[in-house]
Amino acid sequence: MPNQTVSILGLGAMGAAITARLRDTGHDTVVWNRTAAKTEPHVAAGSRAAATVAEAAALGDVVLVVLLDHLSVREHLDPVAAELKGKVVVNLTTTTPNQARATAAWAAEHGLTYLDGAIMAVPEMIGTPVSRLLYSGDRGAYDAARGILETLGAADYEGEDAGLASLKDMALLTSMYQLFSGFIQAAAMMRTVGVPAAETAREVSAWLGAILPHTELFAGVIDSRDYSAGQSVDFTRAAVGSLIAASREQGVSADFLEPLLSRLDELSATGRGGADWTSVNEQLAIG
């Protein structure tokens, strides 16, 4: 039977799912939410409610922070630094890498044990085999809370840099939204001839399932930075140009595709049309 008390700050959809999972697996849970009424169902199910963040911090051995954004994290944690001493603070709020590093630096200044986390799951997935959470920062904090963290899903420790979990989270979400944008574009194109989005979704899922392993081939090229072979920039420019033309012919905007074509045009115009098209990766660095 777990003997650590877990305080959860924030009972939005994710905080509520995390609380329910911990409670269902035998953990003593304390909940706090800005709107106190949201604590009531959890109290009825066996959690304890804290009237303030300070009270929640004082009652918990591990404090999970599941708030809206970085500003709300600092708004609620800064005033209770004293109460958080001796606790393990795990921030599961979605923040940028530098925001995660800033909170970790604040925690270090106050002598707090702090770990940053990123949730690669939707609330319904918490506690299931497909739930994955990323953590970075203080290894001691990770080890101390690991049993609790693994209750929520696979608990991957990324390294001492507190921004690493957020960075990987943001990178993977970037690929997700680009993928979903492609589906939305495809659905808009096919809808012009009466094909339901559900049918296009099935087609896209099958196609992407077959083609996604090519990312490992692209990765080898990008890591080697040898762009002398492979599908050329100029070939890919023509292919993407055709996709844009086809979309416009159907009366559908090609806004999702045009930034890629612009990058390829730039490579071609500067004499790199014969290079592998994945060399567009080199253009993405700012400065």
Rank of each mutant, 00 (worst) to 15 (best):
S166A: 15
S253R: 07
A206L: 13
T35P: 03
A245C: 05
A238C: 02
I211T: 14
E258I: 10
S247Q: 05
I126Y: 11
A171L: 15
A49C: 11
Y227G: 00
R237C: 07
I126K: 02
L179W: 14
G287T: 12
A37L: 03
A144K: 11
R101Y: 09
V195C: 05
W277R: 00
P259C: 06
A121T: 08
A56T: 08
D28K: 13
A201F: 14
T128D: 07
L172W: 04
L264A: 08
E124H: 11
Q178C: 06
K87V: 14
E266Y: 05
D161A: 12
V30C: 04
A57G: 12
P123L: 14
L173H: 06
M125T: 10
I184T: 02
L92M: 12
W106E: 10
G194D: 11
A108V: 05
N98Y: 03
L152N: 00
A17P: 04
A141W: 06
E55W: 03
A144E: 13
D69V: 01
A57W: 02
A54E: 14
G86P: 08
T94R: 04
D61K: 12
V6Y: 00
P213Q: 11
A44I: 03
D143C: 07
S72K: 11
R191C: 06
A245V: 07
P259E: 09
G10D: 06
P129D: 13
L67K: 06
L84I: 05
S47W: 02
S279H: 01
A238T: 13
L64F: 07
L164D: 08
A104K: 05
E40M: 06
H27D: 01
Q250V: 01
M125D: 15
D161R: 05
A44P: 00
S262Q: 14
T270S: 15
M190C: 09
A17K: 02
S228M: 01
T103K: 00
L11D: 02
